[in-house]
Simulated assay, not measured.
Amino acid sequence: MTDQDLRVGVIGAGMMGSDHAARIHERLSGARLVAVGDPDAERADRAVRGVPEARAETDPLAVITASDVDAVVIASPGPAHEPLLLAAVERGIPVLCEKPLTPDPESALRVVRAEAAGGRKLVQVGFMRRFDPEYLRLKELLDAEEFGRTLLLHCAHRNPSAPPGFTTDMLITDSVVHEFDTTRWLLGRDLTAVSVRQQGTAPSTDAGVPQLVTIETGGGVLVDVEIFVNCGFGYQVRCEAVCEQGTALVGGDTGMRTHHAGRWGGGVTSDFRPRFRQAFDAEFQRWVRAARAGGIDGASAWDGYAAAAACEAGVTAQRTGQRIEIVLAERPELYA
């Protein structure tokens, strides 16, 4: 550690917050963990255990306002994000906020406008697929039109089982939100409409029922997403681009493949952490470098707002079975 290290506070000591606290302490250069804030004192204490000089706080706002905190990571539940983000923007410190930016486009737009009023991008949204080596290579291929123009994207987002309390709305707001952002990023186009279909003639309230989400884009590329959070076999995220002269798939079979006793096979990860660990590490390391210079290096608050608007349209499409247009506010010049 040096005097120039970015002093980072983490808000939220659940699974994501604790994982990020460990990442900052163990695997990043140029940063050190100084505080973890969570209303649950026991969880906050666990998150800083073994980290010299890092303290636990029960008031998350106290982390943002602390004089020894240069930047914050927000990994608390989405409904708590808006006041935390506004406090960080007001203080003028960089933020890496796990998705969602906020749970709805209205509150997300308030964060965007507060940041735009200050004239600096301070808020980065944690869409980690933008840092995954496979997705980065796919974006390079599509941007260069190596296989001609992109025509379609086929995506799948599968979890072995849904956690307790996981609702049908969360299929969109907690899972497909990643495909909304990834699509905008890969194609460089805004999303224009969304439709949702599932088995049966009426919308199901069973979050374990697979759904098919169709996304329309400003560039005319159609995107379909299979969302299935009760697949049973493991965690899998895939994206296949269909172009004029070829296709490209990311998220296929990875890791070691074995051939033994007349069989071949490999493994499927159990959750998102091993699958995207490299992406998380790269995302955080680049954010640290940018934050030390007072900025961000990733998805902006505007990207978070656009994802929230897509989620709102997606939930409406899910509930009604209708095609719902995605409408965005006027984009501030800061995000041009």
Rank of each mutant, 00 (worst) to 15 (best):
M1C: 11
Q4F: 07
D5M: 12
D5L: 12
V8W: 08
V8C: 11
A13C: 10
M15T: 11
M15L: 13
M16T: 13
G17P: 00
D19A: 15
A21L: 04
R23D: 05
I24M: 07
H25L: 03
E26Y: 00
S29Q: 12
R32E: 11
V34Y: 05
D38E: 06
D38A: 04
D38C: 02
D38P: 02
D40K: 03
A44V: 01
A44Q: 01
A47N: 02
R49H: 12
V51P: 02
P52G: 10
A56T: 01
D59F: 14
D59R: 06
S67N: 15
D70E: 14
V72R: 03
V73G: 02
I74W: 01
I74S: 00
S76Q: 00
P77W: 06
G78H: 01
P79S: 12
A80T: 11
H81F: 06
E82P: 00
L85F: 01
L86T: 03
A87S: 08
V89C: 00
E90P: 01
R91L: 03
G92W: 09
K99E: 04
T102P: 01
D104N: 15
S107H: 15
V111E: 01
R113S: 07
E115Y: 01
G118E: 07
G118S: 05
F127Q: 03
R130S: 13
F131V: 02
E134C: 09
A144R: 15
G148A: 10
R149Q: 14
T150G: 04
H154G: 09
H154A: 12
R158F: 11
R158G: 04
S161T: 13
A162V: 09
P163V: 06
F166E: 03
V177F: 00
E179C: 05
T182Y: 05
T183K: 04
R184M: 13
R189K: 08
V194W: 00
S195N: 05
Q199H: 12
S204D: 10
A207G: 06
A207T: 06
Q211C: 03
G219E: 10
G234Y: 10
G234L: 07
Y235Q: 10
Q236A: 14
A241S: 11
T247W: 01
A248W: 08
G251I: 03
H259S: 14
H259R: 14
A261N: 13
W264V: 15
G266N: 10
T269S: 09
T269F: 13
S270P: 05
S270R: 11
R273E: 07
R273L: 12
Q278D: 13
A282T: 11
Q285R: 04
A290H: 06
R292Y: 02
A299Q: 04
A299T: 08
A301T: 07
G304T: 08
G304I: 02
T316D: 08
G321P: 07
G321A: 08
Q322L: 10
I324P: 09
I324L: 08
I324N: 01
E325A: 12
A329P: 06
E330F: 01
P332S: 08
Y335D: 07
A336D: 15
